[in-house]
Design a protein around this nucleic acid. Structure first.
Lengths: 337, 337
DNA sequence: CTGAAAGCGCTAACAG
DNA sequence: CTGTTAGCGCTTTCAG
């Protein structure tokens, strides 16, 4: 067999002197075919190194064998750890007959090309409600969809999120329980769902403890380390500086720690810091960062599993699943009591 | 137009009462078609929301419109930062008519399904020469290939690497120049190309400075933070402990720093540390980590560009490109002179 | 410049 | 259990 030239079903049929239909059925393990024929076919296919032509199969079955994994952005506001864990979680579940196709929504102006014949299903890792447009488009085009990371206003779609609000609340409560009365907040990208939810959690914790919410103690970041550093630098210059800060992700927490240490203060003696995500490196910092753990991989693999069920089982699944978060206490918080 | 039902070229042809051939040519901007017809066709296509069926096009053109991005593993030994930057670099270059399909080689036992009709081209991010088998397979199947990150024994393939050896040498030379005579080494996964090259760089630096290579000062890691911590813990217990350590990536360097600080020592006063990769967070550590910068994104985007040229231009490209590395000096090295 | 006809490789409906 | 026939939507000869 020459290389580069592909073997087709017809080739096998010709060799065995049977019809190509029989070969096709045999290869697909159809119950209509006798074991003997199946065996013969399997052997010659193996011998000839037959590989099915997915394009042809796609055409006739109206299936692309592509699963789309879409991120709001593959830019700075998606942290490397988050991205990696998501891809890992999804790819561990997707079956090998499917291609895992990765895209960032911000790469494109239009989505004409996102069509039901190009994607059998889509997993959208959504950060902002600007993605809603994309969600509607997919629904309109009847593309099976699972949305991760952001709670949708509609419940007719499989939607898996982590309990951002509860996690943030736990983080702030932890600081308050340790005697902190002035808890600053470093926020994420305005408009991102996680930013909103975690801020709500921050508010709830303060209010339930009858502490006042101070605008001067809230700074916006964009989920990058540098933005955390900048935000903290500002917070250090406030009239009545806080004794502690909750950063909406670990990267910003790290930036904040940098700012604190650079200014000559110490952690946790002068300032306590809590992050969010429990990134792999947070326990390696000095001091080790107290953070809120959420299993992104878990969210991702659950989402992928649901999507596979929808596609393969041809069923309708819907509903919101919230994955728990958990405060991991380390050395970056001082007990003031 | 009902949703879910797709518009085809024939539909357009029927409406305009011209042949589907003409429509096809018009949509593909063939010079054979008059501007007037083109305009008419474009308008109705737009109106009907026509989207080409890639499966059909694939079948007849023998093209899949898939670009494969393969990693040795999407497991622990591929750091999140490395993974993220690679995907980012590649995806910024790939044209939107192509799908970027991501895979980890360790997911599969066989590669029968990797075939020229499923991938128009492949970018392999290779860490180990165990991937050679895969390289040969792709060549045998005539799939355009670009290999990143690892130098291949053959030069008939586009091969883009960073100068790992030179970078490592620069790192160790830097320590030596600062008066360190005992430089320990924390290695990566045995068998990985980067591990080998960086060790060679370490040897070269020591030898050129007429320092002895001590087995007791070399520990294996696996590129994870935890392995760095474990390795450094061992190095701290050596009879004559080193004054400095070069870790083959930043993650292990961070683990090493953790071990040093946990043991009650200080950096750089007691021990100096140098890493490799210049990960985004290395400047945020305390002390900020001196590291070797290599632009993974650059390697990735160059690779993707070459691959697109090969595929679109239908040309043969070959040869090794080595992307420079650069030592970034920060605060984790003490000057002993 | 346009159209008619063929065919990519596969699966599926129908007929034995 | 097997074979015949048709057709998925597109591009590409070849013939006007």
């Amino acid at each position: 067999m020459r290389c580069g030239i592909s073997v087709t079903i017809k080739d096998i049929a010709r060799i065995l002197d049977i019809s190509h239909t029989t070969v096709s059925r045999a290869l697909n393990d159809s119950p209509l075919i006798s074991p003997a024929t199946k065996k013969k076919v399997a052997e010659t296919a193996k011998m000839l190194n037959y590989v099915p032509n997915y394009s042809a199969r796609s055409l006739v079955q109206n299936k692309s064998f592509n699963i789309g994994l879409f991120f709001t952005t593959i830019g700075d506001s998606t942290s490397a750890d988050f991205f990696y864990q998501t891809v890992h979680g999804v790819s561990s579940v997707i079956e090998k007959s499917y291609n895992l196709v990765i895209n960032g929504l911000d790469h494109f102006e239009d989505f004409d090309w996102v069509d039901s014949r190009r994607f059998d299903g889509v997993i959208l890792v959504s950060q902002s409600d600007r993605d809603d447009e994309f969600v509607y488009l997919l629904r309109e085009r009847r593309i099976p969809l699972v949305v991760l990371n952001r709670k949708l206003p509609i419940d007719s779609i499989v939607n898996i999120v982590s309990d951002d609000r509860g996690g943030a609340k736990a983080a702030v409560n932890h600081l308050i329980a340790n005697g902190h009365r002035e808890v600053a907040l470093i926020g994420g990208v305005p408009g991102f769902h996680a930013t909103f939810e975690r801020r709500e959690g921050y508010f709830e914790a303060l209010m339930e403890n009858e502490l006042t919410i101070k605008k001067s103690l809230m700074e916006d970041g964009d989920f990058t380390m540098e933005s955390g550093r900048v935000a903290m630098t500002k917070l250090l210059e406030v009239q009545v500086p806080p004794s502690s800060v909750f950063a909406m992700n670990d990267e910003m927490a790290i930036g904040a720690m940098k700012a604190i240490l650079s200014a000559g203060y110490s952690i946790p003696d002068d300032f306590s810091v809590v992050g969010f995500d429990d990134s792999r490196f947070s326990s390696y910092f000095s001091p080790a960062l107290t953070s809120v753990r959420r299993s992104i991989e878990d969210v991702a693999s659950r989402g992928a599993t649901s999507l596979m069920e929808i596609i393969e089982g041809n069923v309708e699944l819907t509903g919101l699943t919230s994955v728990e978060t958990k405060l991991i206490s380390r050395q970056s918080v001082r007990d003031l009591r």
